Amino acid sequence: MGLKAIILAALVVTVYGQCPALSGACRCAPSVYEPVAIICQNAGSLQNAIQAIQAARDIPIDSLTILDTAIPTIPANAFQSFTILRLVLNRNTLQNIDDQAFNGPLLDSLIELDLNDNNLGLIPQTGIPRLRNLRKLYLNRNRINQLSSTAFNAFESKDLLLKLELAGNRLTDSTLGDATVFRPLTLLQELSLETNSLTSIPSSALVNQRNTLTNLNLGLNSINEVPVGALDFPVLSSLSLEFNGITVIPPQAFQGVPNLQFLYMTGNKFPSWAPEMFRYITQLKTLGIGETPISVIPNNAFMHIPNLIRLEMSEAAVDTIERGAFQRTPQIQAIVLNKNRLSQVRADFFEGLNDLYSIDLQGNRIDNVQPLGFANLPAISHLDIRYNLFIISFIFQKP
């Protein structure tokens, strides 16, 4: 047995050795990163789940996940004897949290709280505000249709919270509340407002996060324009505007996000590739721009983003790649162009791209691959050319 295998075996034994024997609907699901990870599913009630994990009462729990269990209310002292770092309560019909729900060690130990897929109608004002070290809060897919201007004012961890997710609720521009709602969250770095009903970028609500926000997800809303000045986040590295109604973004709109590295714009309505759109985001590493009417990738498509490493352009209308387009991105590693309308692979498409390891051209209309079309690509390890016309012609070619 090699040294690596011995080390791995030792890690597995160590990890499993730390998780206690459990009963009922709960089981250990440890990993190297979470040696004591417990999952309870279909436990019937919170009381049943807590009873089933009594063996872990005196052990620090890295994560406790309770799924598909009727917990309309978290009562007082529910977890009083447990020390938990990450608590996940998903699909539990949760509506109310008692103010004393997290009494005990959890007030200081809980770092991450995931309440996705429940029935909360607002940002909880009882229980959660008393948590002193909360860093991540997930409230996706609840029934939150209003954010009070004081929603986070009472949070004892308001100066520590780094990540907040409110995707899949019922938030609109007006129900988002006034411009003060997020102001207490002075260190907030990651915010998801995906899958709501916003029609504009909530710039005024994020004034206090100007110098902290690194990840902003506004995908699947109804935002159809990005005005100049709406994005003023100097340290933002990731932005999603996927599946909105955007047809054009003026170059100056990105002037306030000079350090952007990941930009996701799939599912918008850009009629053609606009190279100037990227003039001020020269550090871009990943670009998602699929499911658009764009038919041509022009020669100068990447003139302002030469550091691009990954292009995701699935299910667009691309039938033409002009000569020299990808040569402007010499560091590119992955090109995803599946389900477009390409009819051929020319020898110049990928020429000289020494770092390119993945090409996905599945589901196009390719009936011709020129000699050397995929040649001289020293890093290539993944090539998907399934479901193209030349494959069909090979299958049915007569001897």
Rank of each mutant, 00 (worst) to 15 (best):
G2W: 00
A9G: 15
G267E: 12
P298K: 09
V228G: 11
P227W: 10
K163P: 00
R57E: 13
V235I: 15
L89W: 07
L137N: 04
K285S: 06
T195I: 00
R310D: 04
Q255H: 11
A347W: 04
A151P: 13
F350L: 06
A205Y: 01
Q51S: 15
Q397T: 09
P293K: 06
G219T: 07
P35L: 07
Q18T: 11
N300A: 11
R210I: 09
E165S: 15
L231N: 12
N42H: 11
P251E: 10
D173Q: 12
M265N: 04
N224E: 13
D99C: 03
R386N: 14
D98E: 11
N42Q: 08
I71C: 04
F396L: 13
S314K: 04
G373K: 08
I395Y: 07
D114R: 04
N169H: 05
V207Q: 14
P378A: 06
L188V: 12
L188M: 14
D319H: 13
A167C: 03
P72E: 08
L389Q: 13
A101R: 06
N96V: 13
T73C: 02
R341K: 12
N211I: 02
A55C: 01
A37P: 00
R170E: 13
I249D: 08
P129D: 12
L236T: 03
R328C: 08
L241F: 13
H304C: 08
I305A: 12
A55L: 00
G290C: 06
N92H: 01
L107I: 09
I385K: 02
S272N: 12
G363T: 00
F302H: 12
G267W: 07
T126S: 14
L188W: 10
S63M: 07
G17E: 10
M265W: 02
A56Q: 03
F396Q: 12
L311V: 14
D355Y: 14
